[in-house]
Structure formats: structure tokens, C-alpha cells
Write a protein that binds this DNA or RNA. Structure first.
Lengths: 224, 224
DNA sequence: AAATCAATAATATCATATATTTTTTAAAAC
DNA sequence: GTTTTAAAAAATATATGATATTATTGATTT
């Protein structure tokens, strides 16, 4: 299992992206090159390449001649991102259910199992690993749609998912039993090859998560 | 009407993107920094920023340690891009029809008028302005969905549209009367506020365009 | 023909220099 | 005292050259 020798550029990209998603770099804050240079120990050239990529991904706002900022958050943006996630993920789910083979089913069951273990941990009060819980959540949703056989769709979806994730992490709270039940229901519908039910469940799942996030946002008064 | 003093970076971005969409930079070809430097008279730093943005947009493939390439074309990719365009554009069209006000209607009628003028010119054999015909086509489709009130959706759509456009331009041929009739029908359905009919027409329109492009691709044997 | 290895080319990264442009600060005007 | 204007400082955009690393090419050997 040799690790690819990731370049400074790609690792800086991942680190900054992560810091934006996890809120370490606050929404709307200015990204001064000198400060970033010290923080990520990369040169200005490398940083500018990175920030340009992130700008194209929607995590960074680049204002001509004025530099870079972390993309601000807003209720409207969250609503739209959630809607886009639902659109892309439901579409991918349909195709995935249609195309998926037994291999896909196996991976899906495995992904759900790992997620479920984590959900049980969270429910029992051990919230020490929110980060890996989120990762399992992502891996389960990815496993659901992976068989859609549409790389561009998957790539688009992962970008939107990350932007949705940022909102969840800004108000990080756990939906517990309800979300776990929704995940189980989606797994069953997918294995039963019922695309209508599966997408309907997914739509509800995303909508419920959105509502939950919105409520938490209002408490935190992040909604400006 | 003072023009913003676009930077070298942004104009280089536009120029390279244009050259990829119009096929001046052939699909799959290597983008050597030295060659680009001469061609676009920009420095390596600026070019690398540009190429990173284009990579995130899907026009350029960046292979770690191996440099940049124009994203290759394939039948599978075209099918997927067309499907994504239909998904995003239909979704946006529904919301646009729901939200659009009289201002939107006016802009839409104007955009269609300009497109139609161009279509008449093309039908009469004057194919000297394929480029502006494509621009009017884009402006009409944009006018249809502009009132969707979802900036992220519009931005995503425009990126996908450009990638679809590249395939059309690689085999540039004119669909004439049929496409013109489809445009008119979509205009009418949108003005009549009939989202089901409008999206169904749009779906067909994109599908017919796809078929047309695929046929032309087979003739040109671009399909690998 | 396949494998090895040196020579070459290209990329990735950085540091530095200059030109523009913003932003800040200070002075002047009303 | 507030607004305008002008100068100074800070930050960005761009370019260039230098170095290290990695790919590719071509010759040599097996």
C-alpha cells in the first residue's frame, strides 16, 4: 500500500479545504497570502494555485485585485446547496440502483455497517469522534450512488456534498436515532431495488437534515 | 460604461477556455507551460493558476507531476454531460417559471427574438456567424432559467453547458428549422407558465441535439 | 526484444523583484 | 466637525530566475 507522493500543492489544497469545511477558517474571513504562507508553509505561487482551485469549487471567493476570502455562509446558500445535493444525489441514486451489481450491494452493506456502529457509539453519548462519524456518513452516501456509472455526476456531487457538510459542521449536532433509522431504510430500499422509495427516502433524509441544521443555525445565530 | 481592467489572469483564463471549447486546443493534447507562455504571453505563475482553475472546471486534466492536458472527449462523456445539462437545466427551468416576473418574460422574449433572427440567417445559408449563433443560443437558454433564483445552480449549469458546447463546436453543424421550432415551443410554454410542458420540451430539445451531435461525431470519427 | 542507466526535458516549488491597486493615514478644505 | 483630497503603506498581480524532483528519451547492455 504505497502512498502516492502527494505534492505540496495537493496537500495544501486538502488542508485549506478541510479548514474551511471544519470552520477553522471562518466564513467570510480574509485569506491573506502572507498569513497563509506561514500557516501552511507553502510559497505564494503554490498558495495562489490552491486558492484558485478552491475558488472554482466554491469554497473561496476571489475578488479581482482584492484577494481571496472564505466563501460566506447564509441561510439562502444553505437552502440552495441542500436542494442541489438532493437533486444530484437522487438522480445518481436512481441510476446506481439500476446499474449496481452484487459487488455494489456488498460494499453498500459494509458501508452501512460501519456507519451504524458509529451511530450506536454516538447515541451512547460518546461524541468523541464526530469527525469520523461524518466520514462514515459520507462513505455510506457515496456507496449508495457509486454504481451510477457517471464520473462527472459523482465529482459534482462530492463538491456539493462538501459544501453542505460545512454547514453541518458549523453547527455540529447529532440527529441520533432518527437519522440512523433513515439510513437503514435507505439501505433496505436500495437493496430491494426500489428507486422510487429510495429517492423519496433520500429526499426526506436530506430535508430533515436541513431542517435540523437550520434550527441549530438559528440558535447559534450564524444566519446573520 | 467603463470596462473593468481585467487582469492578465482572468483574460488568459477566458482565452484558454475559449480555445478549448472551440477546439483550437485539441482534446487530449499536452499543455506545455513553455509553449503556453509564448502563445498567451503570460508567465508560468499566471498560467499555472489559470490551468488549475480550468482543471477544477473540467476543461483541463491535471496529472500530478506530469502536467496539464486538454480534457479528452469521448462518447460516454458527451452522454453524461448531456444528461447533466438536462437535469440541471430542467430543474432550473421549473423554478424559473415559478418565480419569473414580467421583467423576466420581457428579457426572454427579447432573447428569443435575437436567436430567431440568427436562425433565419443560418437557414438561408449564411453560416458566416456560427459563433454568434451559438452565443444567442446560450443567451436564450440562460434567459429561460435566469429567474430560478439560485446562483449556485446557475453557475453549475453554465459550467456544464460550456462543456456540452465544446462537443457541439467540435462537429459544428446546424439543426435548422427543427431546433428553431423547439425554441419557439419552449418560449411559448414558459410564457404560458406550464412547467411540465416546458421541461418536457427542453428534455427533448437536449436529447435531439445530443443525437445530432453523436451522428456528426461518428461521421468525423471523433468518437475514438 | 527486454532491461538498465545516463542524459534530457518538464514540472513543482520557492524566493525575490516590480507594477498596480487598495486601503489607510494624514492633511487640507469647506 | 465632517468631508475631500493627497500622500503613504499594505496587499495583490505578475514576472523571472533558481533549485529540486520527477518523467521521458535514447543509448547501452544483456
Amino acid at each position: 500500500m504505497a502512498k502516492q507522493p502527494h505534492t505540496v500543492g495537493s496537500s495544501t489544497y486538502e488542508r485549506i479545504k478541510r479548514d474551511i469545511i471544519f470552520g477553522t477558517l471562518a466564513p467570510g474571513s480574509k485569506l491573506k497570502l502572507d498569513a497563509l504562507k506561514a500557516r501552511y508553509s507553502a510559497s505564494v505561487s503554490t498558495l495562489r494555485e490552491t486558492l484558485n482551485r478552491l475558488a472554482s469549487d466554491g469554497f473561496v471567493a476571489a475578488e479581482e485585485q482584492r484577494g481571496f476570502f472564505v466563501t460566506p455562509v447564509s441561510k439562502e446558500d444553505l437552502l440552495e446547496i441542500a436542494s442541489l445535493r438532493a437533486l444530484l444525489e437522487c438522480h445518481a441514486l436512481r441510476q446506481s440502483i439500476e446499474n449496481g451489481d452484487t459487488e455494489w450491494e456488498g460494499d453498500l452493506v459494509a458501508a452501512h455497517h460501519k456507519l451504524h456502529r458509529m451511530e450506536l457509539m454516538m447515541q451512547s453519548g460518546d461524541e468523541s469522534e464526530k469527525e469520523s462519524w461524518k466520514r462514515y456518513d459520507w462513505e455510506f452516501h457515496l456507496a449508495l450512488i457509486r454504481a451510477c456509472n457517471a464520473p462527472n455526476l459523482l465529482s459534482l456531487h462530492s463538491k456539493i456534498y462538501d459544501r453542505y457538510l460545512r454547514y453541518q459542521l458549523l453547527v455540529l449536532t447529532f440527529r441520533g436515532e432518527v437519522a440512523a433509522a433513515e439510513h437503514k431504510a435507505m439501505l433496505d430500499a436500495a437493496l430491494a431495488r426500489d428507486p422510487d422509495k429510495a429517492t423519496q427516502l433520500l429526499e426526506t433524509h436530506i430535508h430533515n437534515g436541513l431542517t435540523h441544521t437550520l434550527e441549530a443555525m438559528q440558535l447559534d445565530s450564524l444566519g446573520q
